[in-house]
Design a protein around this nucleic acid. Structure first.
Lengths: 142, 142
DNA sequence: TTAATATTGATAACCGTTACTATTATTATA
DNA sequence: TATAATAATAGTAACGGTTATCAATATTAA
């Protein structure tokens, strides 16, 4: 099935591409509804998956059981705050070597990797915020 | 609520502790039913979460939408085969430094991390197996 | 023993995601 | 520009893993 243009797909992508946070389908759905009040949640999901499969966006599995989406497809890692749940990009140098190190003593073929760092974000550190609904575990699922 | 002893909880833990794969709740449920045919799936889930919260086991989020469980709580990383879905432990040296590298240019506090490597496992490489129900993407969700 | 209470089994509810389908929008072609 | 082919949509139902509920049971302390 050859891809056809779709205004709704554009709207989904445009909503995501200017964002630095990593919203879930629900947030994207709510945002796009400003422009397309009748858009269906299924349409949002379908287009998000199409955009992922065509390499326009990537999915980010934070470990909270909900899929997050990221328009930045460049290789980078993520930090997840165990207090507020915020997901931030994490720029770090020389992590490219990690893949090589892992491949060194592994019999299979490694094609990619993703790393997730957990802790307390700058904002929560400053606020010394109470742990909210989200549990403040040292290590979340992952 | 002070923890009370439970035979079912022991069975869940004993099933998991000798395993090198990273079974899901369903697999554990099926396994424990050999010994406790009337155990409920809810009981398995509840005890798995209790075991996690008490640090006896850890959860592993592979990115397939299902929680995997691992009795090895030592810090180690995982490899996920994009063909057969197998999850293997990945021993790699000098990855301890990764956390330090990440913390170097980050304002928050990093307490832990987990890395997931994707690729084709040794067995699938040998068999040149056809991609099954699981999509053979280079980068799965994550 | 008895009393207090954590745990269980059974089942319903929950919720993020996916599938279904008649209708509509997009694109190619005449 | 009209027409035909078909991809995409809105609305909604279904799906599946996980969580919540609750009366009955097991565990522990006294």
């Amino acid at each position: 099935m050859a891809l056809k243009h779709s205004r709704q797909r554009d709207a989904v992508y445009n909503f995501l591409k200017d964002r630095k946070d990593h919203p879930t389908a629900d947030t994207i759905y709510a945002g796009v509804r400003d422009e397309y009040p009748n858009i269906s949640l299924g349409t949002v999901y379908r287009n998000l998956m199409v955009l992922r499969d065509t390499g326009k966006i990537r999915t980010v599995d934070v470990g909270d059981g909900v899929i997050h989406f990221d328009a930045d497809t460049s290789e980078h890692n993520h930090f997840i705050c165990t207090r507020c749940g915020r997901v931030e990009d994490l720029e770090m140098e020389s992590i490219d070597r990690v893949k090589e190190i892992a491949a060194a003593n592994f019999a299979g073929k490694i094609t990619g990797y993703s790393a997730y760092f957990y802790g307390v974000c700058e904002r929560c550190l400053a606020e010394q915020k109470e742990p909210a609904d989200r549990q403040d575990r040292e290590q979340t699922t992952g």
